[in-house]
């Protein structure tokens, strides 16, 4: 079949490439059965496929007819006569003139579609208010495994994720408890008693898009959200100082019992998480 030296050379080269591909594929099987190793499996199977690819492309360039061949682009627009015939076929039986019938078919379609689409209502319950938060006065602060947080266990400058007792699974619940060195806090008006003994607590649900505000810079007293870097000033009511969040994290008023138990002294100062249409 091959006539010229060049073609014979190409033929030999492609055969060699295909042989490599076959060997690599067998090698892949061997590794899979003998000792499952992701790297070697990938190297053998992938390498075999690449050799196959090079072989095919060399084949197409060296041993197959390469143009230029030519062809006419089709005339997409049909002759006026054909078009007229189609139009008259469409009008058979005066279908198009029965406007009322066509209209009611359309209305039926709309009605059925509307009805079917409205059953999407079954996809979920009636939405609960996005302002919901389980924090209420008197709830103990607990960690994610439910153990109560005691003031004596929280050293100055440390940070703990806390939940209201009994609500460790509520997505609206997570909060951060920080113990500030004394005298640093600048409470907002009306919040002067909310941070006893330097304990200060904010909702952990980011006011931007709801990620957990999980990073704490203890030299600048800033909380940062890892998702889009909204940064909140812990000393000044967690107002946003950097990043895309448009509002502060709600604060939780705290009370410390004589035995060191930490309690919520009221609800959060606002709805946790991002703002929404009915947010006030």
């Amino acid at each position: 079949m091959s006539t010229t030296t060049e073609e014979r050379r190409a033929d030999r080269m492609i055969r060699a490439l295909f042989a490599v591909a076959i060997l690599a594929a067998v090698g892949f099987s061997f590794i899979y059965w003998y000792d499952d190793d992701t790297q070697l499996e990938g190297a053998f199977l992938g390498g075999g496929l690449v050799a196959l690819a090079v072989g095919l492309i060399v084949w197409s360039h060296r041993l197959m007819p390469e143009g230029p061949f030519e062809e006419e682009y089709p005339d997409l627009r049909s002759p006026a006569r054909t078009e007229a015939e189609v139009l008259s076929s469409l009008e058979r039986g005066g279908v198009g003139r029965r406007k009322m019938l066509i209209g009611s078919l359309g209305a039926f379609g709309v009605a059925v579609a509307g009805g079917v689409v409205s059953t999407l209502r079954s996809m979920g319950p009636t939405p609960v208010s996005l302002a919901y938060s389980p924090w209420t006065r008197g709830l103990k602060l607990v960690t994610s495994d439910g153990t109560a947080v005691n003031a004596s266990e929280v050293p100055v400058d440390s940070i703990v994720s806390v939940f209201p007792a009994g609500f460790t699974n509520s997505p609206q619940a997570p909060a951060v408890l920080i113990r500030l060195p004394p005298g640093l806090n600048h409470p907002l008006p009306g919040r002067s008693t909310w941070a006893p003994q330097g304990f200060i607590c904010y909702s952990k649900v980011c006011s931007h898009a709801g990620c957990p505000v999980n990073l704490y810079n203890r030299t600048a007293y800033e909380l940062q959200c890892p998702c889009h870097q909204s940064t909140f000033d812990v000393l000044r009511g967690a107002r946003p100082v950097f990043g895309p969040a448009g509002g502060p994290l709600p604060q939780l008023p705290l009370r410390v019992e004589a035995d060191g138990t930490l309690l919520a002294d009221g609800p959060l100062s606002g709805p946790p998480g991002p703002v929404f249409w009915h947010h006030s």
């Binding site: 070697l40 992938g46 075999g48 690819a53 095919l56 197409s60």
Partner: peptide
């Protein structure tokens, strides 16, 4: 329109592209 024909040239070339794509992706995967 000027070019190459579907059979066999483009078929081989396209299969080559398929094998090449799959090959590079499997290499990455491994």
């Amino acid at each position: 329109l000027v070019g190459s024909q579907l059979w066999p040239t483009y078929t081989a070339r396209s299969l080559g592209l398929f094998a090449g794509t799959a090959g590079v992706l499997v290499l990455l995967a491994g």
